[in-house]
Nucleic acid binder design. Structure first.
Lengths: 331, 331
DNA sequence: GATCGCCGTCGAAGCGCTTCGACATTCCCC
DNA sequence: GGGGAATGTCGAAGCGCTTCGACGGCGATC
C-alpha cells in the first residue's frame, strides 16, 4: 500500500496525493475529495521512514527523563504523559530516552535524524549536556533552569514564587516564625536548582514580612527526628511548609507525636500533588506537571516552525487553601 | 555526511561501508579497519529514515503505558525505564504511547512502519486491543494477562504465587486467621487481573493450610475505617497482607490506633517496592518491575529475530523477611 | 483578441540507505 | 594444473515519499 496505489485508485499522480495530504499546494475540492476517498478505502498510511527521508522531518521528538533519586516519579510521569498527548496534537510522536544515555544519546538521536527536536527534563545547574544542546542544530527545550541559560529555551514551575507564596500566606495568617522542610540533602548538593529556588523565595518573602524563617532538608528516613528536633529547638514555630512528598505523612505523624496538633498548634502547607494534599486536608501548592509538559512541547513546536520563543517560561504557583491553615491560627 | 562520503574517504564503495556497519557480509580485516576509521574521523551517522526505508526495519519499538487510576506510577516508570535500557542494549529505541491513543494508535505506529514491534502494559481481561495486536503483523508482548492469551505473548509478575507465598508464610508462622487488604474496588471491577490473581493465590494457599482467609479491597481514603472494621469484626485476626501501596502507612497507623501492635499483636506482609517496605520494616514481596520491563523487551527482540518464545512468562515472587513477621507470633 | 498571471496538476529527480546479483581473486583438492 | 567453492568487493536497483520546475487551461486585464 503505497502512495502510487492511492494515486492510481484516485486517477491522479502521486505528487497530487502528497499535496492533498500535506496541504502544501492548493488542490481543487473535487480532486481532494477523490484522493481522500481513495486513502480511506485503501487504508493508506504513509511510510514514516520514507517520509522522513524525503522531507528531512521525522515528526518525532525526544524526551529525556531523569532516573535519579530525590525526584518525584509521579510528577515526571505526569509531565511525560502530558508531553506525549500534546505532541500528538501537533502530529508528532515521542521517543523516550533516559538520562544515562547522556550526551551520546542526544548526539545519536539528533545525528541520525531520528528526532526533530529534544526536550530534556531535570536539568542540572552545570549540566554537561548544555553545550551539546546548544550546538546540536536542532531545537530543544529544557525543563528546569541551568546556571547559564543563554541560548537555550527553559521552562519550569516557579518554585521561587511558590516558596514565597507559602511564606506570605503564613505571614498573612499572623505566624511570626515559620519553617520550610525541603528535599533530601542530596538534592540540594546536586544543584538541581528547584530545591534551592523554593528556599530562596521562602526566605526572601519571610524577610520582607519580618517573619523568622528556618529551612531544613530532610531525608525520608529522618522525618521523625527532623520534626522532633525542629519543634523542640524552636518552640515558637507555628507555621510549616513541607516540600518533600514521601516524608509528608511521617512528618505529620511526628508533629502529632510531639504534641502539636494541625491546625490548632501548627499550620501546614504542602508543596505536593493535589491528590495527596487533598487526602491529608492540607493547604497546598501543586506542581502543575501537566502544564509544564504540555507547554514544553508547545514551545518546542513553535521553535520547529521557525518562530522565536521566550528564553524563560515560569509557571506561576496556585495556592489551594484547605483546613491546615485556618484564618485564625492557634499558638 | 552520508555513506558515500565515508566510502570515498575510505576508498571503497558505499555498499562495502554498509556491509562493514551491518556485518551482513564478510569484509576483510584491512578494509573493515579503514572503513571504521573513516566513520570515526568523519563522525558519520546513518540516517534513521533512510535506513528504515531501505531495510524496512526502524529499530524502534512502541511502549504503551497506562494512564488509569489504581496503577502504581513508580512501578510503571520503572518498567518503562528498564524497557528503554534493555531496548538500547539491542540497538533499539522506544517510542512512548499512551493508553488513550487506543487501537488507532497501534494501527498508526505499526501501519506507518514507525515501529517494528509493540509492548503493551496494563492489559485488561477483555482488552479491545487484543484482536488488533493479533492481526497487526508485527510482534508484540503484553505486560499482564488477558482472559484469552491465545496467539499472544504475555509476561507478568506472578501475583497468584505472591498471594500464595504470603498466606503460606503466615501459616508457617502459626497464624490461623489472616486477611489480604487489596487494591481499590475500582481495580477489581475493571478486571485488570492482577488484583484478582493475588486474591486467588492467597485464598487457595490459605485453604490448603486450613487457615481462615479474608479479603478486603481498600480505597486510599478508607484506610482507617477498613482497618478498624476489620480488626473489630475479626478479633482473631493476627496476620495481614497489604497489597496496596498508597494505603500502607495509613493502615499501619490505624492498626496502632486500634490498639494492635506490629509485630507483637499483628504480623504484616507488604506487596510493595522494597524501598517502602524497608523503610517501614515490613516483610515484603516486591514487584520486580525492572525484570518485567527488561524481559518484555528481550522477548520482543527474540520475536523480531523470528524465533519462537513462550506464550506466557511469569516472574516468581521473592519474599524478603523483615521484622514485621517474627518467628513466634504474638496473639 | 492578445497578454498576463494564477491555479491545479504532473513528471522527474532525489532523499540516503540496503541488498541482490555479478565479478574477481584466492584457495583447495583431486 | 584445472574445476569448484569460498571470500571480498562493487554497481545498480529500489525502498516510498516530497518537492521543484514545468505546463496547460482559464479568467481577468488592457
Amino acid at each position: 500500500m503505497k502512495i502510487s496505489d492511492v494515486a492510481r485508485h484516485a486517477g491522479v499522480s502521486p505528487s497530487t496525493v502528497s499535496y492533498v495530504l500535506s496541504g502544501k499546494r492548493s488542490i481543487s475540492d473535487e480532486t481532494r475529495r477523490r484522493v481522500l476517498e481513495s486513502v480511506r478505502t485503501l487504508g493508506y498510511r504513509p511510510h514514516a521512514g520514507a517520509r522522513a527521508l524525503a522531507s528531512s522531518r521525522s515528526n518525532v521528538i525526544a524526551l529525556v527523563v531523569p532516573l535519579r533519586s530525590g525526584i518525584h516519579v509521579p510528577v515526571v510521569m505526569q509531565m511525560a504523559i502530558a508531553a506525549v498527548t500534546t505532541a500528538r496534537s501537533y502530529d508528532h510522536d515521542v521517543l523516550l530516552l533516559t538520562q544515562d544515555e547522556g550526551v551520546g544519546g542526544l548526539e545519536r538521536v539528533a545525528g541520525t535524524a531520528l528526532v526533530d527536536a529534544i526536550i530534556v527534563m531535570d536539568v542540572e545547574l552545570h549540566d554537561v549536556r548544555l553545550p551539546v544542546l546548544r550546538s546540536l542544530g536542532r531545537p530543544s527545550v529544557l525543563i528546569g533552569f541551568p546556571a547559564d541559560p543563554t541560548g537555550l529555551t527553559c521552562i519550569d514551575f516557579d518554585f521561587e514564587a511558590a516558596g514565597a507564596a507559602c511564606a506570605e500566606h503564613l505571614a498573612d495568617l499572623g505566624h511570626r516564625e515559620i519553617a520550610l522542610i525541603g528535599a533530601p540533602p542530596a538534592v540540594y548538593e546536586r544543584g538541581t536548582g528547584f530545591a534551592e529556588r523554593t528556599k530562596t523565595g521562602f526566605q526572601r518573602a519571610a524577610a520582607d514580612r519580618g517573619v523568622r524563617a528556618l529551612v531544613r532538608p530532610c531525608d525520608p528516613q529522618d522525618a521523625r527526628s527532623t520534626a522532633t528536633e525542629l519543634l523542640r529547638d524552636h518552640p515558637g514555630l507555628t507555621g510549616i511548609v513541607i516540600h518533600n512528598e514521601p516524608t509528608m505523612e511521617p512528618l505529620l505523624t511526628a508533629f502529632r507525636a510531639a504534641g502539636r496538633r494541625v491546625p490548632d498548634d501548627l499550620s501546614v502547607i504542602a508543596i505536593a500533588p493535589d491528590e495527596l494534599a487533598e487526602r491529608l486536608g492540607l493547604t497546598s501548592i501543586a506542581i502543575p506537571a501537566d502544564d509544564v509538559g504540555a507547554q514544553a512541547v508547545s514551545l518546542l513546536m513553535t521553535k520547529l516552525e521557525g518562530h522565536e520563543v521566550p528564553g524563560a517560561t515560569l509557571l506561576p504557583p496556585r495556592l489551594v487553601i484547605r483546613s491546615s491553615t485556618p484564618e485564625i491560627p492557634g499558638t
